[in-house]
Design a protein around this nucleic acid. Structure first.
Lengths: 347, 347
DNA sequence: GTTAGCACTCTATATAAGTGAGTGCTAACA
DNA sequence: TGTTAGCACTCACTTATATAGAGTGCTAAC
């Protein structure tokens, strides 16, 4: 069967109506609300066809129709209006995301908060996996006779540090020497490369104190490097889902919250997702426990390379158009703000 | 009216039973389960007295009795058994909290996670407000020609850093000089004291480049100091509340989650709480929105001074005895682990 | 002071009836 | 041939009613 112009029109109306009302849409409601010049009976016939084609479904015989994932997909691909982010929202976003910029982490975290407020959904952001970040400094600083702070700074300015407890006191001179040697050895190398190097071996021929020290700090050094590489996940607006009819059922709400609280797992999903503006609807999600949800994500870039993501998660019934525009606007803002090199940034 | 021995005994049985069953306790159930040598009718008379005295209440005429906050208070103060943390739990706690100790933050965060798993409640931890932490190093490191990393390390090894975007490039020499001067000026001062100093003024008589630089970095410097001072809140096991009958109602669950997600507000409450092992039950909580909850917190100490807290939050019906023991055991472990100075720590 | 007995209360659960939105089918119409 | 009015039918949801069960409070007897 072909999707006639009229069928498309009806489907669009159903999806648009359902997105706002969360109630199954009936033929009568449709003909009353949207003047299409055809009677409810005709609409019913068309709806029946659309159902057969897999675009609509019936919660039960005597209920209105509900869009299927396939319908949302069609809607998103061809039928959705382009929404312009309102001037007011633009102003808020620009104000909050481009003023007083310090670390990427803080900006991105704030973006997630803002996104959840603007969309009334649960939002999230991940920072880039800095696989090609290179090391800039290694620094050991004495805190007390048994504790030193190890800090590593990447080329991008990210800082990772840890406290190390030593069994024997070390001299400030040794720490300084070690800082210099390690910085010299590893500066400019990618963090990933360093992780595969045998740190201790590099100090095999050095004086005993240094070799011994290298041996003791090796695990902490690797741990700190790994955290420099690591992806952070920020989640905001979790409680927004309580205002969504789909999660009126306590078990549904519980499942949702448990799902997103599995941060490790959720981060994996986000990392493995394609880049660009990606919408996955219900059953399009690979994970079984996400089959009832839609995700919208967009990535932001830094100097065109490192890619982090920002997005929302909610029921398949969501305002795809509006949300997509907001996310896009935000990630563009972030990308622009962190365009470190190149053209002048206007303050 | 006096609280006779028998009344106490009955009250204890009711509280203990209700804590486990979450069902109002009736006279018949009580006489069947606990052999006290008196008939249900007698128990009823006593219960009636206890109700008049404010220890029990009736959800409705023909339901059993439920303990009031006052009853829980009495239970906690005098009637509760002392629980010994099981050997198994002790082993887990010791293993996880005292091995591979690095920053206090990570240990404390992990403690919260562990606590929520052991108690099946929502748990939280706050790191100490380091009011009397003193500054150890100030360090400026160049990242690229427009960006520098500022990092401040406290006497306790906590690191706070920020990226600073400069409008004009600065030389590595200037940064190094600045690091040295500021470290020299502020080392050993408490963070709080430094916050009140006029940073820029200190460089008034210095060469222009340094003075100008001081002016530009002053706000970021203060921000970074403040974060060195700041209290972090970790919350874990939020979804545990979905398994608790008290939160079967979606609105109750929502309120609870919204309450603890107000991190700022919740942190305030925890900071202002007395030190030591503190239990507040329902209406004993100052905040209106906590009147249905009980909080149990204990503090941990570092060198006997700085105090952070660890605890749980849940419905007033909770296993006060067991939970208290676990929290106490954990905070003792943390305090001991971070006993930096003094006697030998056994690995 | 304690207890058995009994009427009473109130929730929870099951059952039945009524309402309303919506469908699917059929026959008539353009 | 596509469109529409009409109508019987379905099903969730609401309201009303009956019933069972746990528990209380009171009274009178022990």
């Amino acid at each position: 069967m072909e999707l006639s112009e009229r069928k498309l029109q009806i489907l669009q109306a159903i999806v648009a109506d359902f997105i706002y009302s969360a109630e199954p849409v009936g033929s009568r409601t449709l003909s009353r609300k949207y003047d299409m010049g055809i009677s409810p009976a005709t609409i019913r016939n068309e709806m029946s066809d659309l159902e057969e084609m897999g675009y609509l479904s019936h919660p039960h015989t005597s209920a209105g129709r509900v869009p299927s994932d396939k319908a949302y997909r069609l809607y998103v691909n061809q039928m959705m209006n382009d929404y312009e982010v309102s001037a007011e929202e633009k102003a808020i976003i620009t104000e909050k995301l481009t003023k007083n910029v310090r670390e990427l982490e803080r900006t991105v975290h704030y973006a997630a908060t803002l996104l959840s407020e603007l969309t009334n959904l649960a939002s999230f952001a991940i920072t880039p996996n800095r696989v090609d970040n290179t090391l800039k400094y290694v620094n050991f600083l004495p805190v007390d006779e048994r504790t030193v702070v190890l800090m590593i700074i990447g080329q991008d300015g990210k800082v990772s540090s840890t406290n190390i407890r030593l069994e024997h006191p070390y001299t400030a001179e040794n720490l300084e020497l070690m800082s210099k040697v390690m910085t010299h050895n590893f500066k400019g190398k990618t963090i990933n490369d360093i992780l595969t190097v045998d740190i201790v071996k590099a100090f095999e021929n050095d004086m005993f104190a240094l070799h011994d020290f290298a041996q003791r700090i090796a695990p902490d050094f690797l741990d700190t490097l790994e955290r420099l590489l690591s992806v952070d996940l920020y989640m905001e607006g979790l409680t927004n889902i309580f205002s969504i009819p789909e999660y009126n059922d306590i078990d549904k709400a519980r499942c949702f919250i448990e799902m997103v609280q599995q941060k490790q797992q959720f981060t994996e999903v986000l990392i493995n997702r394609d880049n660009g503006l990606i919408i996955t609807i219900g059953s399009e999600n690979a994970k079984e426990y996400m089959k009832d949800c839609s995700l919208i994500t967009a990535d932001y870039r830094i100097d065109g390379r490192l890619v982090g993501k920002l997005g929302v998660i909610g029921p398949t019934r969501m305002k795809y158009g509006e949300i997509t525009s907001v996310i896009k606007y935000m990630t563009d803002n972030i990308s622009q703000t962190f365009q470190l090199k190149g053209e002048e940034k206007d303050e």
